[in-house]
């Protein structure tokens, strides 16, 4: 089950906690992995850890020309892109009344527009191969909202609409398109929270603990696998029961 031997996966944000773990687990299941991110050093370190079948593909997702080029570079490096994991995300938090145009636009560009452009870039190959998996790592806040994160929540909710629409367009070609919506996962992003903030959050989580990147990676392996071929347009919530929808 869940064998990905011979498949090639491009993972954005692979220099981060969740993206790195996604790449590790896809690789462990036999996939070739393309590691993308803005910082080359952690990508290089991960590639060395993984050994063969790992390719470093640095990319600034706010640079649209570079995003279009990334789809091509990944296909050249690995021979194909069978699995695309749109995981990269940035936050520029602030109350909406004081949110600058730049903070809004940057978050939309990096989190949502790059995912659209990358999806468009890899689809041609997937359509020809009559097999593909596109996975968007969205967030519980895209569904439930979160004060101070209007830009981030809008981008993440946008991914859900994008994935459902694309899922309808390409389902007949064996290309599935799904979202994973993590709740609170311990990463560098959540390390910034104070203990008081963390306690408040934990009260809201029936599981009584934050998730770990491996929880998201396992969900990704499932959706990427041949066994998930009949699952498309879905959002898989991985949040310890925090928000049940």
């Amino acid at each position: 089950m869940f064998d990905l031997t011979g498949k090639s996966a491009l993972v954005t944000g692979a220099s981060g906690g969740i993206g790195g773990e996604i790449a590790r687990q896809l690789h462990a299941r036999g996939a070739n992995v393309g590691l993308s991110g803005t910082r080359a050093a952690p990508l290089q370190a991960l590639a060395e850890e993984l050994g063969p079948r790992a390719h470093v593909l640095p990319c600034d997702l706010s640079d649209f020309a570079a995003v279009d080029a990334l789809a091509r570079q990944a296909a050249e490096a690995m021979g194909a892109v069978d699995i695309l994991v749109n995981n990269a995300g940035i936050t520029r938090d602030g109350l909406l009344m004081r949110m600058s145009d730049e903070d809004w636009q940057q978050v939309i560009d990096v989190n949502l527009t790059s995912a659209f452009r990358l999806s468009r870039g890899v689809l041609r190959g997937m359509m020809k191969a009559r097999w593909g998996r596109i996975i968007y790592i969205t967030s519980v806040v895209g569904i439930a909202g979160n004060g101070g994160q209007a830009n981030y929540a809008a981008a993440k909710a946008g991914m859900v609409g994008l994935s459902k629409s694309l899922a309808q367009e390409v389902a007949s070609r064996n290309v599935t398109v799904n979202c994973i919506a993590p709740g609170f996962i311990s990463t560098a992003m959540t390390e910034k929270l104070t203990d008081e903030q963390k306690e408040k959050i934990l009260v809201e989580i029936p599981a009584g603990a934050m998730g770990v990147p491996a929880d998201i990676a396992a969900a990704t392996v499932y959706l990427a696998s041949p066994e998930a071929s009949y699952v498309t347009g879905a959002t898989l919530h991985v949040n310890g029961g925090m928000t049940m929808i």
Binding site: R124, M127, E169, V170, S172, R173
Partner: peptide, 11 residues
Amino acid sequence: ADSLDTVELVM
């Protein structure tokens, strides 16, 4: 052909 087929034909 459906609309997706026409896109694929053009490609």
